[in-house]
Design a protein around this nucleic acid. Structure first.
Lengths: 153, 153
DNA sequence: GGAAGGTAGTTTGTGTCACGAACTAGGTCA
DNA sequence: TGACCTAGTTCGTGACACAAACTACCTTCC
């Protein structure tokens, strides 16, 4: 487990770039800490998160995570060895494999989700209801902007 | 360079946790892409970012990045081999080493900062001036909350 | 001023993660 | 059926991270 995080600074962000970058490191640090409390890496819990409501093939999974397909093999294999995910042959395509959470993986995913939620709640207690709304709206707007510009490529 | 990122979603975040987590992955993906355009990793450009306005010792640097001191040795050594940072003996403590950007490191850092800024600007073009203000304010509030709860440990 | 103990950093060994290139096996299409 | 295409794995390499053990220097205290 990495030692206590003190994400980048004492100094408040002056512009939107710094605000978003620093905020992202803050959240990632939080996620990393929760992950390592369960002896997992950030990418492993991200894998669990993606599989919460999906049963994708390896290639689709790789696209989701922004990884090469050969990286997926290793990632899924390690998660499989821990009993968190399973590979099932696709009924429609003999080449393809569908990755899904095992029951143990589902339980762990729920637990980790709850812990992350709790941590984020702790972080956001000082926010007003209006500010909560703002965050959701802003995140949605940025995610949408990214998704549409991605699709335009 | 990792293939095109399609960070987690088509679906908009329903709650504050998802909003922040998904947003953080979006920004980190952006940073990773900019980094790999320069054949660097995320952690390497983060190192450069921390050194922009600091000349810390190895241990202080490790604290900033949330890494073990032994991890710092490798990270700094690799950056040093690329000519981006340098180790200088501390004038006050014979055990200590001060890490700073080389001129090449400063130039690269400026360039990367500009590219990140440009990417973020592209992402945030659709935001109103008010929303920009909201983002900065919210980020500052959360970073402050994290910093003070960290200190309380 | 010298021994005891603390602190800064490195070394070594191990494991995870990521990539590209080459490969296997199963689909597709003419 | 033969010529492709596609899904996934294997293999080799390198970055990154940790813990434990080590070196070298500083501090403290008698």
């Amino acid at each position: 487990m990495p030692p206590s995080h003190n994400p980048d600074l004492a100094d408040a962000p002056q512009n939107t770039m710094d605000a978003l970058v620093q905020l992202s490191f803050l959240i990632q640090g939080l996620l990393t800490r929760v992950a390592s409390d369960h002896d997992l890496s950030l990418i492993q819990i991200r894998l669990l998160g993606v599989l919460r409501d999906r049963r994708p093939g390896m290639l689709e999974l790789a696209r989701h995570l922004g990884l090469d397909k050969s990286s997926m093999t290793g990632l899924v294999t390690r998660a499989e060895k821990r009993g968190l995910v399973q590979r099932l042959p696709s009924p429609h395509d003999g080449r393809s494999v569908l990755v899904s959470l095992t029951p143990a993986g589902q339980r762990l995913t729920k637990r980790i989700t709850a812990e992350v939620d709790q941590q984020i709640t702790a972080l956001t207690t000082s926010l007003t209801a209006t500010e909560h709304t703002h965050i959701r709206a802003l995140a949605a707007k940025l995610l949408h902007a990214a998704a549409t510009s991605d699709a335009a490529q």
